[in-house]
Simulated assay, not measured.
Amino acid sequence: MDRSQPILTKYRGVICDLDGVVYRGAHAVPGAVASLNAMIAGQVPVVFATNNASRSPAAAREHLRELGLGDEGWSVVTSSQAAAAYLAEQLRPGAPVFAVGGPGVPEALTEAGLTPLRVTELADGRTVEAVVQGAGQDVTWRDLAEVAYLVQAGVIWVATNLDATVPTSRGLAPGNGAFVGAVQTTTPAAPHVTGKPGTALFDLARSRLGSDRSETIMVGDRLDTDIAGAGAAGVDSMFVLGGASTLRDLAFAEDAARPTYFGFDLSGLLQPGLYQRHGPDDAVELSPDGVLSVRRPVARHRLLQAIVSAAWHARDHDLPLVTDTTLWAELERRLGV
């Protein structure tokens, strides 16, 4: 591929995360919607694949339209849908399933031909054959306790995702991984996880796109789910800053969680890609004791590429690299993140 061409010229379909990439809470990430509309106008379809199980695909679609996304050329798939599809293969049609999380969980189970039950419906002694645990603003201690009791009794346990946090307009909030962790304090069992970084959600998204692995790119803000999952699913990836994972996280990422490209936001897909350069760049300097510093002012895209390339070179060659969060926060400030 000619690296002077925009990233998107290599691909026929885009899988895109939502929280932290397109929006944070109710508000769009600056430039995200304009970039998406440009991609779709260029006949490159987009499937939004989200670990967030609290919303139904219909609610997510409505939110995206409110933010200004056009009506055509895109769709939404969720980890709740992947969980429901998994259970539909394991259980008889109409089987009762305890649904924990936002409206997206019971809606996905119903669409898959299963019978979702909420915690209040279990009070009369009704039994279930499985439990799907997702996050939601109304998840209570009673929900988590019931999951624990059911898992201890041997019921099939499916988690929509293990994201420890979720980005909001006010900062990071506890994600489903935190709630799953609470249940795991009561049992040695582990859930079957259908969201990223597992491959099920990526495969579901690619089936919507109709693209081969080599023709698909994933865009996300979490190295441990979006980027590692893309690698496991055999598709390229672009990491964007400003969401759940930080510049420091990117600098110290292990090979499996390193993206093909990295950038500031979705507009990076419409530009030549930023990737690890193996030659020296005098824009930055790595001291013998591992302090990475900026030597001279350069364009922010070049500076980001220089910082990440220098950090990965240090990691790959067992050179010192300072972990101090203050230093990395200052570099993010220099980059305008």
Score class of each variant (00 low, 15 high):
residue 126 R to H: 12
residue 130 A to L: 09
residue 130 A to W: 05
residue 133 Q to K: 02
residue 134 G to N: 05
residue 135 A to Q: 12
residue 135 A to W: 14
residue 136 G to M: 03
residue 140 T to N: 12
residue 140 T to W: 15
residue 142 R to M: 13
residue 143 D to C: 04
residue 143 D to L: 05
residue 143 D to A: 01
residue 145 A to K: 07
residue 145 A to S: 15
residue 148 A to W: 03
residue 149 Y to K: 09
residue 150 L to S: 01
residue 151 V to Y: 02
residue 152 Q to I: 02
residue 158 V to C: 02
residue 160 T to L: 11
residue 161 N to T: 06
residue 162 L to N: 08
residue 166 V to N: 04
residue 167 P to D: 12
residue 169 S to Y: 14
residue 170 R to Y: 15
residue 173 A to S: 12
residue 173 A to I: 09
residue 175 G to K: 01
residue 176 N to M: 09
residue 178 A to R: 07
residue 179 F to S: 06
residue 181 G to H: 07
residue 181 G to I: 12
residue 182 A to N: 10
residue 183 V to Y: 04
residue 185 T to M: 14
residue 187 T to I: 08
residue 188 P to K: 05
residue 188 P to A: 05
residue 189 A to K: 09
residue 190 A to E: 15
residue 190 A to T: 15
residue 191 P to W: 03
residue 193 V to A: 05
residue 195 G to C: 08
residue 196 K to M: 11
residue 197 P to A: 08
residue 197 P to E: 03
residue 197 P to T: 06
residue 198 G to C: 11
residue 199 T to S: 13
residue 202 F to M: 06
residue 204 L to W: 11
residue 207 S to F: 08
residue 216 T to K: 00
residue 216 T to D: 04
residue 219 V to W: 01
residue 223 L to M: 11
residue 225 T to N: 07
residue 226 D to I: 11
residue 226 D to H: 10
residue 226 D to G: 10
residue 227 I to G: 01
residue 227 I to M: 08
residue 228 A to M: 09
